[in-house]
Design a protein around this nucleic acid. Structure first.
Lengths: 143, 143
DNA sequence: TTTGAAATTGACATTCATTTTCAAAATTGG
DNA sequence: CCAATTTTGAAAATGAATGTCAATTTCAAA
């Protein structure tokens, strides 16, 4: 079974990308972080660690990760794009608390099935979907 | 049964908003257009009709419409926010064709039910949701 | 090891939609 | 009509995404 490093290595070969220290740093950090993260956040994390790197490189590398299938871009209604792990991470969707901003991941096989039904009914060939449920998390609606 | 004009009138009273010709124009146009529309598009429509109005006013009025419950903001992954009718328009979601950009609306009572189940399981109080299914419409995947 | 074509980097600029600012104009209660 | 308040819109500010380009790095071939 190919691992994430291997997937990206193959992607680099196919795209004739050279090996790069900075890019490797970004990838390493991205893979080490559990939660979804924005380009700016990842950039700040790297700088905090003392890594000398420019924002552009972080941004471009995240885009590459998305293209290679290792990352998925998600956005929650605001304008900031977040990147989360995709490889061997079955698709999931998010609950977003409107009070504290917390996001909760959930998986729903039923939703996946429903997506197919809806698509079929509309003669549509689905490739991906994005469901965000907005509301209040347990902590926030008890206050 | 209150109609849209009445809903907005009540909203104005509550918010101590004065009556304004420009704003009324925006609302009239928004209510007359069937499909979702962006602030810029609505602005252009109004100008095309010869209405002297600034972009800011259109933008602000659309925001007010959203606050009053007459409009819903939707976005499809790109950066542009669209506004669509909400009042007495049961919630629906969208299929977006990645090839031609066409959007198809659909309603799914099952999805509504599923949202409640998912929320309950996560101790979450849902207020709204947004589902976008990306893929190819019939016209585009047959090519 | 040297070389040079190709890829990478990052500071900076640009784009683009959204949002704010503020002085002038419009509205409205008294 | 008057004064207080709200609205308007041109212009500026914002904020994230994306493009530019000269300097740097990589790497395969010499």
């Amino acid at each position: 079974m190919k691992d994430e490093q291997q997937v990206f290595a193959d992607f680099c070969t196919a795209r004739k990308l050279k090996n790069s220290t900075r890019r490797n740093k970004v990838i390493e950090k991205f893979l080490a972080v559990e939660k979804h993260i924005s380009a700016l956040e990842l950039y700040n994390e790297l700088r905090k660690d003392g890594t000398a790197i420019g924002y552009s490189t972080v941004y471009r590398t995240l885009k590459l990760l998305a293209e290679s299938g290792l990352a998925r871009e998600v956005n929650f209604g605001n304008r900031e794009t977040h990147f989360e792990h995709k490889f061997q991470h079955p698709h999931h969707d998010h609950l977003v608390c409107l009070v504290c901003g917390q996001t909760i991941e959930f998986k729903s096989p039923r939703l996946e099935k429903l997506q197919l039904q809806i698509a079929r009914k509309n003669k549509f060939k689905p490739q991906a979907h994005n469901l965000v449920i907005y509301g209040q998390c347990a902590k926030c609606y008890r206050l």
